[in-house]
Write a protein that binds this DNA or RNA. Structure first.
Length: 713
DNA sequence: TGTCCTCGAGTTCC
DNA sequence: CTCGAGGACA
């Protein structure tokens, strides 16, 4: 306890510096010359001084890490990155790494003898963050967002203990402006301890550290965020202005960061030549479990900053650094059951249920097994211990059997199975195989409706198109969803509910829904019902092409729908077109034409369409577009667009006279690239296709563009 | 007949 | 995003 004491401003300032120095020593050097008790005394003095003189206290005082909660629903401010947070080229083996290096050499015009020096460091599995200091004070903390525009989460970042709120004077001076980038993460042991604490408090365990980190940073109460054991590790400084001296290499940069109290992981090293990088990667991968935090690879960057300038960036990634990934972690779990699902189009697909297990950052419970061949090739049986991976992409896959199931099922085996697999207590639904040691084979009858199935190639199909419930429901969902008439207020769950209550039998019934019926359903109140009926009323005018695509006619998607809409002036005209007429349309062949014709010939289908027309549905036939900024251009989209939705973007292109296609080819004129682009960007580069970013896209079409961080706050 | 494009469909998780 | 298959074209 501190005594009543008259503090002077000088004493107060001295105290602040001392506490800041103690924090630096503890978090950056890893040890402190002060004992815990001494530190507590200093901190309590600071609190006392500020209580006596509230006017001295600034938001960056060490006592002010936890601020007030954000007002309800206010969200975080979006801020444009001055230097975009580009992605890093991901490489998976030594050959790719060597090739990347030789590209660097060619670019720099180096000979074989001139070895490059790299700064190598772990690639953390955390959340990246940009800290912005002005005249030494932390003023902004931005998430990556899409790389162009992030969110300012400063109030939450303040609570991270090892993030300095003010930079001290050092040999490097105090920069006028400093942007430091790094990763926020939770160390493995701290995560475990945090989870145990949560369980003790009756809260659920968090599934993994990365999601916990990203979830924590998005909360709107800093006091909550402060409870998470978050830490920050810096790795770059894309903007530095007004320094006493400027670092010329990454190693010097780390020295400067250290002097400013900005922590780094401690695992970064200088590597000589590409062999040094490969050796570091192999060493770190072998030591993966002894490193206290999760990594998914290493990052190697040119040590010399001037060489980086010379290499520059491609549209989406930096040329002077790469990530060399570790072999993805595969986990072992138990295959509980194989369920055969009937899809919206009637296809029977086997799906694995596994004991929940965390793989590469998410908890996996299901994995698709594609088809019968796939299951047989893997030789899967319920009860097997299986390997699960999330290689490359996001979708979990079973890659093999670790230990085959033995003997009969143990006591209580069914406890791990989800309830959805049971029809009644103790009896499994048809199409579910869950007996230990039982072999898989595709059912001969549809598990949903019992109709004999039809085989076509690798796939098995339920032919009962009109009677089979999952198919009817699937078509209705398809009709209502984005691909159809775009009713946002109902999804899969709501439609299933309406089917179950007998309110609807198919898509046409949606237009005949009555308020009093909907109000009978669980979780449906006045507001949501009115909202839905409103939407249904306003969506009764449907563009012809969109309407056709919404009907879920086999072989007919959005493109073919638009194609037909341009050829026929009414649904009636299309319904009377014969096979030959259809086949002669450019883009349709014998198969697609026959599928469309067959659909039109089934009276159940035409009756359904007629019922919609009777309920007031009218089709909007497209007028011809002439001229326009994109007249005659083929445009492809990739990555995530921030300011424009995909659907909106497509509409914009069409209104400008252009055509949207799904993949890049020599016929493509323009690739519009959002955040996190994939393989399409690579292909576009190879083919020399013109690439626009989202900003360019909006500018060319004369649309407003988000303002820059420099002029907003 | 073969190859290259393009479209449609399926896929997991929060 | 990736795969399988239909369609255009040589």
């Amino acid at each position: 306890m501190t005594q009543a004491h008259k503090w002077t401003l000088d004493q107060y300032r001295e105290l602040v510096l001392q506490v800041e120095a103690a924090n630096r020593a503890y978090y950056v050097e890893g040890q402190s010359p002060w004992s815990d008790a001494e530190y507590d005394r200093m901190f309590q003095d600071l609190v006392a001084a500020e209580r006596e003189h509230p006017e001295w206290c600034t938001p960056n005082s060490p006592t002010q890490r936890v601020g007030a909660p954000l007002p309800e629903g206010s969200g975080f401010a979006k801020v444009r990155h001055v230097v975009p947070m580009l992605s890093i080229e991901s490489l998976f083996d030594a050959d790719q790494v060597r090739e990347f290096e030789s590209k660097m050499r060619r670019f720099l015009g180096l000979t074989e003898e001139q070895a490059l020096e790299f700064s190598v460091e772990p690639k953390f599995d955390g959340v990246s963050l940009a800290l912005i200091y002005e005249r030494g004070a932390l003023v902004r903390a931005l998430t990556r967002g899409d790389g162009e525009v992030g969110e300012d989460i400063l109030a939450n970042v303040r609570t991270i203990r090892n993030v300095p709120l003010r930079l001290p004077q050092s040999a490097w001076g105090i920069p006028d402006l400093l942007e430091v980038r790094g990763e926020v993460l939770i160390a493995r042991d701290r995560f475990e301890a945090f989870n145990q604490q949560r369980v003790a408090e009756g809260q659920p365990r968090l599934a993994n550290a990365r999601n916990a980190t990203s979830g924590a940073l998005r909360r709107n109460d800093p006091a909550e965020v402060a409870r998470y054991p978050l830490e920050f590790h810096s790795y770059s400084a894309p903007r530095m202005e007004g320094l006493a001296k400027a670092p010329t290499t990454q190693m010097e940069l780390f020295e400067a960061l250290r002097a400013w109290g900005l922590p780094a992981s401690g695992y970064q090293e200088l590597a000589h030549g590409i062999d040094g990088c490969l050796a570091y990667q192999a060493r770190l991968e072998a030591d993966r479990d002894s490193v206290p935090f999760e990594m998914d690879g290493i990052v190697a960057k040119l040590n010399r900053l001037d060489l980086r300038e010379r290499l520059g960036n491609t549209a989406r990634a930096t040329r002077w650094q790469y990530a060399h990934k570790f072999v993805p972690r595969s986990e072992v779990s138990t295959l509980l059951a194989i369920e055969v699902q009937v899809g919206a189009k009637g296809r029977l697909t086997p799906r694995a249920h596994v004991s929940p297990v965390e793989v590469g950052g998410v908890v996996v419970r299901h994995a698709t097994l594609h088809n019968e061949d796939h299951v047989l090739k893997l030789g899967l049986h319920p009860g097997d211990r299986v390997y699960l991976e999330r290689a490359g992409d996001v979708i979990p896959q079973i890659t093999g059997v670790a230990v085959a199931a033995q003997g009969s099922e143990p006591e209580g085996w069914s406890a791990g199975l989800p309830e959805s697999l049971f029809e009644s207590e103790g009896s499994l639904r048809p199409g579910v195989i869950a007996r230990y040691g039982e072999a898989f084979s595709m059912p001969t009858h549809c598990p949903a409706c019992g109709a004999p199935v039809v085989r076509s190639g690798k796939y098995v199909q339920c032919p009962n198109v009109h009677g089979c419930l999952p198919q009817r429901m699937g078509r209705t969902i398809h009709f209502a969803a984005r691909a159809g008439i775009e009713i946002d207020s109902i999804g899969e769950k709501a439609i299933a509910q309406m089917f179950q209550a007998g309110l609807i039998q198919g898509p046409a019934d949606l237009f005949l829904l009555k308020a009093e019926d909907l109000l009978q359903l669980d979780r449906w109140g006045e507001k949501s019902v009115a909202n839905l009926l409103d939407q249904l009323r306003s969506r009764r005018q449907i563009p012809f092409g969109k309407f056709l695509a919404a009907l879920a006619i086999p072989g007919l998607g959005e493109t073919v729908g638009d194609l037909l809409a341009r050829h026929f002036h009414s649904f009636d005209e299309l319904a009377h077109a014969d096979l030959e007429t259809l086949q002669h349309i450019d883009g349709l062949g014998p198969k697609t034409s026959a599928q469309i014709r067959a659909w039109l010939e089934d009276p159940r289908n035409t009756e359904m369409v007629q019922r919609m027309f009777d309920a007031g549905v009218t089709l909007v036939v497209p007028g011809a577009v002439q001229g326009g900024v994109l007249a005659g251009k083929r445009v492809v989209f990739t990555g995530t667009l921030v300011q424009t939705s995909r659907a909106e973007a497509k509409k914009l292109v069409e209104e400008a006279g252009g055509q949207v296609s799904s993949s890049v080819s020599p016929k493509t004129h323009i690739l519009v690239q959002g955040g996190k682009p994939g393989s399409k960007a690579k292909k576009a580069a190879e083919l020399g296709v013109e690439v626009w970013d989202e900003t360019t896209f909006r500018e060319r079409l004369g649309l407003p563009v988000l303002p820059n961080a420099e002029d907003s706050n």
